[in-house]
Structure formats: structure tokens, C-alpha cells
């Protein structure tokens, strides 16, 4: 039985993430889940784009690909279609997945492509020193929003749900067990599986917005979130300012590959090409 440690390329450490960054919590949860599922390393392919989060595949002992900014899902689509035996996981940051990669995100979800996407949302472009992203809440500060962000941010889970994904869930770096639980579901089901993980960026987002250090930011992730099943029992006024975490969509609709295989059967009369 493998342990999380066995999936790391320890010779590629130390990682590039700042002290107090939340991305490592996600990576830890991901690897523990893989250990629990006893995955075969050769069958896993992890793809990323550009940004802090996108350095993650380099630390993992799988088939790994660090692509261009925003395009990870499109590369991953090619990999999955060329070799459906591979379990393809995309890891991204919020800028990568929702801004430059927004088009690929909505279409991968719409196709119900057999890919797991884990988006580490720290509300900021960290690698380029703290510009606002589509996930930066309105009026928060960033290096390119020195007077406060004018834009509204996505509710990413609602976006992906609207696009038709089979699975949509959200956890935070303050809820590692939830991350593991959701990733476990995602990795054991077909179709587009989406897990948003809210992470803290104390270096750029936290410092500029005076949100405190990593400890304070993790505490606020705990305090400002509520499990969706608990939220359902509360009146709307009690949910003001709270971000819901939990599993929002659990469907088992036909996936892109289900439909593709059925089409091939239909046009070839079941004779495998």
C-alpha cells in the first residue's frame, strides 16, 4: 500500500510556494487521497497551466505536464482522448482557470469531459506579485487595483454547475478532510469533476488587504464558510457574508467518452476498429 510520500518527487523539493501558502494543504490532501485509493502512478497524468498552483505537477511522481497559461484543460483533453486509460487531473490557480482559461473551463465542463479539475483559488495572481483576478472580491486591493477592485467575482461552483459538470464541490485549505473527501469522489467518478479549493495567499492577497498572516487567514476561511447542508437549514440573513462549501452537484450523466464510444459502436456496427 502506497503512502502519500511515495507520490512525491522529493528531489525536486523545496517547492516554490511561500511560507504560509495554502496550496500545500491541497497537495497533501490530494496525495493522501491517492494513497488511500492505491492508484497506479503510471496511470495518473497531472496537467497544469501557469502560476503558483501550476508548479504542483513538477513535485509529483506521475506523468506530468506544465503547459501554457490557461490552456491546461485543452492539453488535458488531448491526452485523455488519446489515452482514455489515463486518469487525467488538471490543477490550476484562479487566474489560470477562470480568466485566461475561462473558455476552456466552460467547454470542458459542458462536454462533461472525463477530467478532474482542482482549482486552487487564492483570489489573486500570486506569481506575478498580486494583481486582481476574476476571483478577487469586489473592492479588495491588488497591485492593479490600488483603489479597490471594481469587478465582481465569479461564484465558480455555480459557473461550473451551469456548464453541466457531473461533480462540483468546494472546500478550503482550512478543511483538508473535506478536500480529501471531494477529491476521492472526483477521482472515482466519470465526466467533468470539479473541486474548488480556497487557499490563502498571505504574501500578496493577505498582506495588501491587511488580513493578517497565514493563521489569521486560515481562521477566517473557517469562520467565513459554512457547509451547504448546514446552510440549507438557516434563514438567508444568517448566511450573509458566508461562502458555502460542500458538494453542490453529484450527477452521473453520460460523459464525452461515453458518447464517443457509443458513436463508434453505432458507425462500425460494434466491430472495434
Amino acid at each position: 500500500m502506497a503512502e502519500a510520500w511515495d507520490f512525491l518527487r522529493t528531489d525536486k523539493m523545496p517547492h516554490i510556494w511561500c511560507p504560509g501558502c495554502g496550496h500545500g494543504v491541497m497537495m497533501n490532501a490530494l496525495l493522501r487521497t491517492m494513497a488511500k485509493l492505491d492508484v497506479n502512478k503510471d496511470d495518473i497524468c497531472v496537467v497544469s497551466g501557469i502560476g503558483c498552483a501550476s508548479r504542483l505537477p513538477g513535485y509529483l511522481d506521475f506523468n506530468t505536464l506544465h503547459t501554457t497559461h490557461g490552456r491546461a484543460l485543452a492539453f488535458a483533453t488531448g491526452i485523455k482522448l488519446a489515452n482514455p486509460r489515463l486518469k487525467v487531473i488538471v490543477v490550476s490557480g484562479d487566474g489560470d482557470a477562470t480568466a485566461i482559461g475561462g473558455n476552456h473551463l466552460i467547454h470542458a465542463a459542458r462536454r462533461n469531459m472525463d477530467i478532474t479539475l482542482i482549482c486552487m483559488n487564492n483570489n489573486i495572481y500570486g506569481m506575478t506579485n498580486g494583481q486582481y483576478s476574476p476571483m478577487t472580491p469586489t473592492s479588495m486591493l491588488a497591485t492593479t487595483a490600488p483603489y479597490g477592485n471594481l469587478e465582481r467575482n465569479f461564484d465558480l461552483c455555480k459557473l461550473v454547475e451551469g456548464c453541466g459538470a457531473n461533480y462540483v464541490a468546494r472546500a478550503t485549505a482550512a478543511h483538508p478532510r473535506n478536500i480529501s473527501q471531494y477529491i476521492e469522489y472526483a477521482l472515482t467518478h466519470k465526466g467533468f469533476q470539479f473541486v474548488e479549493v480556497m487557499t490563502q495567499c498571505p504574501t500578496y492577497y493577505g498582506r495588501r488587504n491587511k488580513l493578517g498572516g497565514p493563521v489569521e487567514m486560515i481562521n477566517s476561511l473557517k469562520q467565513n464558510t459554512i457547509l451547504n447542508t448546514a446552510a440549507a437549514k438557516l434563514p438567508p440573513e444568517k448566511l450573509e457574508g458566508k461562502i458555502q462549501i460542500g458538494e453542490f452537484v453529484k450527477k452521473e450523466e453520460l460523459t464525452y467518452l461515453d458518447r464517443f464510444d457509443a458513436m463508434v459502436d453505432r458507425i462500425t456496427g460494434g466491430v472495434k476498429p
Partner: peptide
């Protein structure tokens, strides 16, 4: 992007 991914998968 997709053709590069597919090529890497062989």
C-alpha cells in the same frame, strides 16, 4: 493545445 496533449499520449 489538444494535439500537443494527444501527441504526448502517443
Amino acid at each position: 493545445a489538444a494535439i500537443v496533449g494527444a501527441s504526448l499520449a502517443g
